[in-house]
Design a protein around this nucleic acid. Sequence first.
DNA 1: CTGAAAGCGCTTACAG
DNA 2: CTGAAAGCGCTTACAG
Lengths: 341, 341
Amino acid sequence: MNDNRPPERAVTLKDLASELGLHSSTVSRILHSGTDVARSAASPGTAERVRALAREMGYSPDPQATSLRTRRTHLLGVIVPRLSDLVLAIMYEGIEEAAAEANYSTFVMNSRDDQELQRRKTEIMLARRVDGMIFGDAHLDGSLLAELSDRGVPFVLMNRRVPGYPSATCDDVRGGELVADHLWSSGHRTVSVIAGEPYASTAVDRVAGFVRRWRELGGDIPDSAVVWSGFDTVGGRIAAEKILQNDARRPTALFAVNDFAAIGAMGAVRSQGLQVGQDMAVVGYNDTSLAAQLPISLSSVYSPMLEIGRSAVQLLLRVLNGEQAESIRLEPTLCVRESSA
Amino acid sequence: MNDNRPPERAVTLKDLASELGLHSSTVSRILHSGTDVARSAASPGTAERVRALAREMGYSPDPQATSLRTRRTHLLGVIVPRLSDLVLAIMYEGIEEAAAEANYSTFVMNSRDDQELQRRKTEIMLARRVDGMIFGDAHLDGSLLAELSDRGVPFVLMNRRVPGYPSATCDDVRGGELVADHLWSSGHRTVSVIAGEPYASTAVDRVAGFVRRWRELGGDIPDSAVVWSGFDTVGGRIAAEKILQNDARRPTALFAVNDFAAIGAMGAVRSQGLQVGQDMAVVGYNDTSLAAQLPISLSSVYSPMLEIGRSAVQLLLRVLNGEQAESIRLEPTLCVRESSA
DNA sequence: CTGAAAGCGCTTACAG
DNA sequence: CTGAAAGCGCTTACAG
């Protein structure tokens, strides 16, 4: 398999130049400058010969050399709680697409929502000299962002927002409102919320939107009906068990701020001998691909995850260009299914 | 937020050297050489002064400059069908860990199992001058790997194997056997298989292991009982519907080679008015975190996904060092739950 | 329109 | 033990 062929040195500008009897600087201008410079750098004939040879010899510029000279790596760092969270994985797909279109490459690392790891992985990325960072794991109570801002590190937030920094998110307050409207108009009057982690704006905003709207509608919802939890299935199950154990207040509907927490909650409901949809409505958030396909399909608030990822890149690119970088908030929509029909 | 502070040039070897009245080459040897060279490069006292200053000034070597000089980028390229497939996301976590431990950084891109995209993304990575590639999306019938091998590109496979190339995988044949043993001993005699995509060794091997063992046990399983499908929920649902529509042969158990396909199948079973676990056993594969947490918990073959990712890195590192690179095949284990109890 | 030179930040033979 | 020099592959003022 592995013949020991010569190390296969890549074609350089100098190779092209000497082949054509030109200077490498000329070749560089033709191949890598804007049309204006390139045009005035060589006669159209020469330019064409250069381009043809570059193609023929499979020339591709060495990014390390370019970076060293230009002080721009065209590298972006992305940190997420975990890529094994479908929501972040999809957002990363959007990042990958948009970054590639703009000729950037991306590193991505998992922080597991651990502040120590967030720091460590960020430093690894900065040591790699990324041009900027996208954080998908911002904590409302963290100090990392302020420090990075002080150090002049360019970054934007994705999925979760923190006041004062540019971010690309779903309008989560609005998403919470949509769920309140839906459950209220379906006749529910006693509801509980599986709220997620209080350090994440996604959790806080979805809950806030829901609760505020519920009360606007004339509903009653005590603070004890809001149970903070992990974002995953296990977290949702535990929270739901806690809610269902309270005999004093039996809700007819559960709003989980995350589809996976909702799935965990569905399990807890079933364990109690109750039927999801019949005896207990359940609504999730994000409308991940699983929601519609579950044995009992799950109502969920769709958030444009791919678009959020793409927007984060565009926002960061604006920051890198020194342009105005206004936060982006994308519209959610509600998908009603069997679990709350 | 964004004060316009000076561009904040990073500390270089030369900065350290001039600060200490040394030459940058000496500093380089002290900081970046093996202990042998470093020891004979300076008196212990000087060495300590250098290291102290480097720490104090927050020196970190410019990887672009290092790469340009050494012709090694310490960059690895990873291509997977989709990171939004939990299985690949977990494997990537293993890659990230192992790569970081070895001081490598990784790019990861999605190919959506499209051969054209596999090519394109590979070329992007190679243009970035990665030292090697990890493919999590190998097709048994593709031509890309042979071409890359011809070009002398170092790579290994992960998750899916292809004969002739080094790979880190689960022993999928064994996994299929485990399921056959389990269903047979539970008394099932008519089973169908939701087989996944025929271009993936995971699908082919799991099916082969299952069918061979089933027949060894004396079971009967016609080729028509093996239905190829997508690996996702939709694929599983469609395949299960097809199986359940066949009135001539009503299986009592379904083996889906992937948890997500299994979840889709559970939906189809329920839509027919059948109870998963009672009327129809379902077994999945990979034991993703969801399996145990579903409302009706799913029996599944656990594959050591994190370990597979880690092994892929170790294997690639061996290839890069010109060492012997034997394929790694890790043991699966069966977890029986409600869906097939 | 084109070339020659300097320099980005490293590493590493070569010399002393 | 330490330094000076060359060079990795680019880009970009400067000069003509």
